[in-house]
């Protein structure tokens, strides 16, 4: 009997320790210091204040929030627009071809995301490969500004996050009954009608899943903005990073992080309301 209990402990103690030490404690601590006062030199004074949260409502920081939501939203939208035709085209292939193509999709993502951003830098800069080629062919006379602006940031974001949209969409598209599509075709439904009446409703779970997995990370990827945005554009990730690493104002950085957690929770709440399941997330 005692043995049985020990056995049970063996299976549940690690996860409890893990959740408490590496998830709950860090987040609670961040919540606590978000109410602390900063001494502007990286130190914190442990007197309760709401000032950090009040400061967030300054126009400057509201703009950063809006910009981040814009970047994340547009990234999600572009990922959706690219991924649907892509997974549909793949689903029309033979199973073996599908398997190979989906493996190929993953290949670039087995290098580090930063290394891929460097690849984009080599492609996009003024003296970069794309401009060289276009100039060489004579399509353009002056090099285009492809990076150090919003365009560069969006390319980086879409590129980095695309698989998080493609994978769940692909697995939900493969559950659509092909006979249903055939029937629609036989009945003379147009492609567009078939998409909106059959494919879209049946792949909604994958769409929601993908959107969630693209939208929330996009709010925080400061390194993409740093490298492809030239330090001119700031999203929440940069703002938090700066508070912790340069502005030495941890409490304010913590308060912004807590607001970011709230935004994420809202998105997840919406995802669940729409029928999404937590266990589908992260099963890439």
């Amino acid at each position: 009997m005692k043995n049985k209990k020990l056995w049970k402990y063996f299976f549940i103690i690690p996860v409890i320790i893990y959740v408490i030490l590496l998830i709950a404690l860090p987040l609670i601590y961040i919540l606590i210091i978000s109410f602390f006062q900063s001494d502007y030199y990286g130190g914190m004074i442990s007197t309760f204040t709401l000032q950090n949260y009040i400061d967030i409502f300054d126009q400057v920081y509201i703009n950063v929030f809006l910009k981040s939501i814009f970047v994340a939203g547009v990234t999600t939208l572009i990922c959706i627009l690219i991924s649907y035709p892509f997974v549909l085209a793949i689903s029309h292939k033979k199973p073996a071809t599908q398997k190979i193509l989906m493996t190929l999709v993953m290949v670039p993502f087995l290098t580090n995301s930063l290394i891929r951003m460097y690849g984009w830098l080599v492609l996009l800069r003024k003296s970069g490969v794309i401009n060289q080629v276009l100039l060489g062919v004579g399509v353009i006379q002056e090099p285009l500004s492809l990076m150090y602006n919003m365009f560069g940031i969006l390319i980086g974001m879409v590129y980095t996050l695309l698989p998080f949209m493609v994978l769940p969409l692909y697995s939900s598209v493969s559950t659509v009954d092909p006979q249903l599509l055939e029937a629609a075709n036989d009945l003379g439904a147009s492609k567009i009608k078939t998409f909106f009446k059959i494919i879209l409703p049946q792949t909604l779970p994958g769409l929601f899943n993908g959107s969630l997995m693209v939208f929330t990370p996009a709010l925080g990827y400061f390194f993409i903005v740093d490298i492809l945005g030239g330090g001119k554009i700031m999203i929440l990730g940069n703002l938090i990073k700066n508070q912790f690493l340069t502005a030495r104002n941890w409490p304010f950085g913590a308060a912004i992080s807590i607001v970011l957690v709230l935004i994420t929770s809202l998105v997840i709440f919406a995802y669940r309301k729409l029928g999404g399941k937590m266990e589908d997330l992260g099963g890439a």
Binding site: V15, V19, Y29, I240, F244, A254, S257, V261
Partner: peptide
């Protein structure tokens, strides 16, 4: 525990990064 487990999956990495650092 079950709910908390999803936090590292869905939370923006930067929040996890700074809270672990803290």
């Amino acid at each position: 525990v079950n709910e908390l487990l999803y936090i590292p999956v869905v939370i923006p990495e930067i929040v996890l990064g700074i809270s672990l650092l803290s």
